[in-house]
Design a binder for these strands. Structure first.
Lengths: 228, 228
DNA sequence: AGCTCGGACTTTGTATACACCAGACATCGG
DNA sequence: CCGATGTCTGGTGTATACAAAGTCCGAGCT
């Protein structure tokens, strides 16, 4: 679910406020500026954005439908705090879909789109060698986006994007260490796709997601051990 | 995405109007009462429901985020008219996910949940024999819902539900003939799950969805041949 | 006749105002 | 001292009012 909710006829004036607010909030969540459990107060947001409460409310409904925030009737809205089990479910589903996506990409074998993915891969490896971990998070997202495009299945791309966003609530996807480890697997996936090895591409891609999930969970548990 | 957007702590008064309206509209879409391309006018809806425009607008934002309606800024909102290519994409993704769901269901092998699915299967076969085609559509949805529950992966259930709803926009899922044909495949799927045959369950389930999609598309093209 | 232009009407977008609920604090009785 | 009840306040839910953009249709022109 990108910015596609409201079609913007290109030159057509300003986009509606509720839409701008929706994107702004979503970006803040993705950026980690708003963290799980944080409260969103309509009045505050309205004032911050310099608008009335209505556009804010409509943006909140959209975020709610996306599953990014939890709305407790009459008690306030909060950035969703996903329980680990749900996150694990999401990761498993993502693994299946990313695997399928890799298979499709291998089947299509679109040289242009794959070259684009290759360039991002190179940039990522360069960043890794230069130990510029902070830029790795965005590159990781870009790489997966490029792969998603390479499958030439737009719906699948959108779904994967939405799912990545949602899982990013569960754990810091942009944790440098996790990124660095997982990055190395990207090369293998892309190679399999380039070779047209559908099965290999799917398997590698699937396990890549699962492993990344495991690593993130480990670090999460290490940081905040179960209070049992 | 069930009614889960707003948690209702049981005794907590009435559900908000915007939520009721959201559900009402969604049901109307699912029921086929509102058809692709139909226009939704805020004022009309507000009057029909006997409320102001605000709850209606918020409901519209949620439906928009679900991808069930298209909002053209300042020009009106319409029930989404999915182009066939997108529908095909959705069907393919659904096939993969339903396949995975069947695999999980086979792996879990929860007797209680599978028995529930079995009961619905029996009801469906009975309806088929009695040629009560009109009830078959709902039973089909129920059967798939039961299967989704049997995988014990809540996120997956929700996603499959949402995807079924969205594809139902593309073609009349409740077309009696399509339903009748596809229904017979259900028995095989459930049997494979009961036998714990993960691979078989996944394969059958996947091809079941793809075939149902093909059949629906055939009928659609037969009804409204390409104007080329 | 066909086209353009302009104005009224329609519909969406936003702001303001009010009602009601839920939790916090205070007060009172035991 | 402790628990129950009253009040107060912050925040959400809904309604009404206003502004702005889009659409439709007919008059006038070529």
């Amino acid at each position: 679910m990108k910015k596609s909710q409201v079609s913007r006829p290109l030159g057509a004036a300003h986009t509606a406020l509720f839409h701008q607010i929706y994107e702004a909030l979503r970006d803040r969540i993705q950026q980690g500026e708003l963290r799980p459990g944080d409260r969103l107060v309509e009045d505050r947001l309205a004032e911050d954005f310099g608008v009335s409460r209505n556009p804010v409310r409509e943006a909140i409904r959209m975020l709610s439908a996306d599953g990014l925030i939890d709305v407790n009737a009459r008690r306030g809205v909060y950035i969703a705090v996903p329980d680990p089990a749900k996150i694990q479910e999401l990761v498993e589903i993502r693994a299946v879909l990313e695997g399928h996506n890799a298979r499709l990409a291998a089947r299509r074998g679109n040289p242009k789109l794959l070259a684009a993915a290759g360039r991002i891969l190179a940039r990522g490896q360069a960043a890794l060698n230069a130990e510029k971990f902070d830029s790795l998070g965005k590159l990781n997202v870009d790489f997966h986006k490029a792969l998603a495009r390479a499958s030439e299945n737009e719906s699948l791309s959108e779904m994967l994007g939405a799912m990545r966003l949602k899982s990013s609530l569960g754990f810091a996807m942009n944790d440098p260490v996790v990124q660095a480890q997982s990055w190395q697997e990207h090369a293998g996936i892309l190679q399999a796709i380039l070779d047209g090895e559908e099965d290999t591409a799917e398997t590698l891609s699937r396990s890549h997601v699962l492993r990344a999930g495991d690593r993130a969970r480990e670090r999460l548990e290490a940081a905040a051990p179960p209070k049992s």
